[in-house]
């Protein structure tokens, strides 16, 4: 599979119409209608949130991660979204889970890529007016159609999970009010925040796909499940919707998603 991500142009905007639509809200405010409406642009009313990180992964692992999701989401025409950031290392894209939605949307007409992110630090313009999110050079992912930045007041700072409540609420709103028929979370690697997202999604009864071999939080949770220690996963009340898939088998993830209605144009095999 060819590498679709042009790593040499980390700041080039490839979102539809050559722009990423940015909205900023306070954590205490209601969800903006404008951003919620962007989710309805997807051809199919289904939504998958990608969670996790890429800590401890080699460059090859990251390429494999991107290709895993490309294969699994081939033909996907729903909404896919994540943390909406991009990491840049030595002037090149350092691929993360947050790069996946934009790539899936580029390759699959009808699919829409959105993102939410917490404002963890003061926003700044740097160099040629590059919009930077923190002191590590993190930028808004330029392949994403729309991004909602959640802040804790103009003066405050959020933790990295500052957007989690909003994204869960938004998904529930899409289901309850806009008629979305399938909601789910897919986790790759990740730390404590990812663990909490997996637990929250499973407790809501949503299909929650956890990728075996992706590392850290995902492998830790899978280890506990497989050793019969599900009850030791903090906060987990219901494990019935946890689905383990293998990082070497994207077809399995696709099939599992298909069986749960994320590809409404295709009957489950």
């Amino acid at each position: 599979m060819t590498d679709i991500l042009d790593r040499t142009q980390p700041y080039r905007v490839k979102a539809p119409d050559g722009r990423v639509r940015l909205l900023v809200k306070d954590a205490k405010e209601g969800l903006p209608a404008s951003f919620a409406l962007m989710g309805t642009l997807a051809k199919h009313k289904v939504a998958v949130r990608l969670g996790g990180g890429c800590k401890g992964m080699s460059a090859e692992d990251k390429t494999q991660m991107i290709n895993f999701f490309r294969e699994a989401f081939r033909g996907f025409q729903g909404l896919i979204w994540s943390g909406a950031t991009r990491q840049v290392k030595e002037g090149q894209v350092d691929p993360m889970v947050t790069d996946v939605p934009g790539i899936i949307a580029q390759e699959n007409p009808g699919c829409v890529a959105l993102g939410t992110l917490p404002r963890t630090s003061m926003l700044s313009l740097q160099d040629d007016s590059r919009f930077v999110l923190d002191n590590y050079g993190t930028v808004v992912n330029p392949d994403t159609y729309g991004v909602l930045i959640v802040q804790n007041g103009a003066d405050g700072k959020s933790d990295w999970d500052g957007d989690v409540n909003d994204y869960f609420t938004l998904m529930q709103n899409w289901r309850d009010h806009a008629g979305f028929t399938a909601l789910g979370v897919c986790a790759w690697n990740g730390g404590d925040i990812t663990k909490a997202e997996i637990v929250r999604s499973a407790n809501l009864g949503w299909p929650t796909f956890v990728v075996r071999g992706s590392g850290r939080a995902c492998d830790e949770i899978i280890g506990l499940i497989e050793n019969g220690k599900t009850d030791t996963i903090s906060g987990l009340k219901d494990s019935k919707t946890l689905v383990i898939v293998d990082k070497n088998n994207p077809a399995d993830l696709k099939n599992q998603m298909m069986m749960r209605g994320f590809f409404p144009q295709v009957l489950p095999s």
Partner: peptide
């Protein structure tokens, strides 16, 4: 000054 997200989403049904 308020906007209802739920109303907007319900129209998209």
């Amino acid at each position: 000054g308020e906007k209802s997200t739920n109303v907007a989403l319900r129209l998209t049904r």
